[in-house]
Design a protein around this nucleic acid. Sequence first.
DNA 1: GTCTATACTGTGATAGAC
DNA 2: GTCTATCACAGTATAGAC
Lengths: 212, 212
Amino acid sequence: MICVTILTVLGETTRDRQAERREATRREILQVAWELARENGLAQITLRDVAARVGMRAPSLYTHFPAKLAIYDAMFEQAWTEYEQYAVRVTATLPTAPRARLLALAYGFFDFAVADLARYQLMNQRTVPGFEPSPAAFAPSVRVVRAAVAMFAEAGVTDRGDIEIWFSLIGGLIDQQLANDPAGDSRRRLIERAMTMWADSVGLPPEPRDPP
Amino acid sequence: MICVTILTVLGETTRDRQAERREATRREILQVAWELARENGLAQITLRDVAARVGMRAPSLYTHFPAKLAIYDAMFEQAWTEYEQYAVRVTATLPTAPRARLLALAYGFFDFAVADLARYQLMNQRTVPGFEPSPAAFAPSVRVVRAAVAMFAEAGVTDRGDIEIWFSLIGGLIDQQLANDPAGDSRRRLIERAMTMWADSVGLPPEPRDPP
DNA sequence: GTCTATACTGTGATAGAC
DNA sequence: GTCTATCACAGTATAGAC
C-alpha cells in the first residue's frame, strides 16, 4: 500500500516534470517564432529557422505542434491574451467620464496595434495563407470584444451599429497608419478628432477634457 | 529603295502580329490567375496551376513574366485600372449635392470592394507574402486618390485629416464586412449613418436626401 | 521568340531508427 | 523526444528544340 502510494507520487512527480519541461519547450518555440516574425515578416516564418534557433531539427517541432499553422494558432491566442491583460491594466487607470474613457480606450488599442506589426497582422488581418484561428484560440478575442461592449453600455451606448462604426473607425485608422506611415503618427493624431465626431454623433454629452 | 520599304512594312507587320499575340497570351495568363485566385484564394495561386490551365508548363510562364510576383504586380495594376474606369463611369451619374455625392462615392467603393474578395485583398491588403506593387503598377491607384481628393475639394472639404478619416471609415467598414460577414450587408447598412456622422462633423450643410 | 525538359533549392510533412 | 531520411510540392534557372 505504501509502495503503491510512493510509486504513484513518483509517477505524478515525473509526469509533472515532463509536462513542465514540455510547456517550457513550447513557450520557447513560440518565443522564437515571434522573433522571426518580427525579423522576417509574419508569413516568412520557416520551420527550419525556428528549429535551428531553438536548437532542434525541423521535424522535431512536430513533437510539440501538429502542424505549422498550429504554431500560428498558439501565437494568435497569445497575442489576444496579451492584449486582454494589457486592456485590463489600462482600463483600471482610465478616466470615468464616457468620452474621455472611450478616447483612452481608442488610444490604448491603437498603440498596442501599432507597436508590433507582425502581431497586429496575426490578430486582425489575414496575412498568413490558410490560417484560421481555432475556437479555443479565438476565445480571448471574444472576451475582449465582450468587455468593450460592456464599456460602451456603461457609457450609455448600446446600439450595435454605433459600436461597429467605432470599431471600423479605429481599425481603419490603424490600417492606414501601418500601411502608409508605419513609423510615424499621422493617423494617431486624428484619433481625438475622430472620437469627438463619433461621440457627438451618438449623443454623448460634452465634458471638459484634458489632453493625453 | 522599294524593296527596302516593302521589307520594312513586312517587318513591322510581323512585329505587330507578334506583339499582339504576346499581349493576348499575357492577358490569358492574367485572366487564369484571377480565376484561380477566386477559386483557391489569392495567395494560393500556383505557377503550375496557371500554366496547366493556359496549356503550358510552369517554366514557360517565365517567357511572359520575369517572376511570380510580377504576375501579382500586373494584376494589381489591372484591378486599380478597373476601379478607375468603374469610378469614372459611376461619377458621371452621381448627384451633385456634396453629401449625396460623397455618399454615392462611398457606396460605389464599398460595393466594388465587396464584390471580389481576392481583388480587394490584392488592392488594399498585404495578403501576398513579399508582394509590393511597383511604381508603374501603383500609378492608377494614385490617380484614383487624386480624383477623390478633387471631389472632396469640390464638396468644400480640403482638410487632409478630414479626408483621411473618411477613407479610414470606409476602409474599416469594408474590412469588417469582409472579415465578419462576407456574404451579408450588415456593414453596408451602416454607411449612410457613418457618412452623415462625418458630413456633420466637417460642417457640410444639410440637404434633402433620397435613399439609394 | 516560344516553349519544353531537366534540375536545383527550399518548403511543410511523414516514417521509422535510436 | 529527437534524430535521419525521404516525400511531394513550391518557385526558378538553364539549355536546347522548334
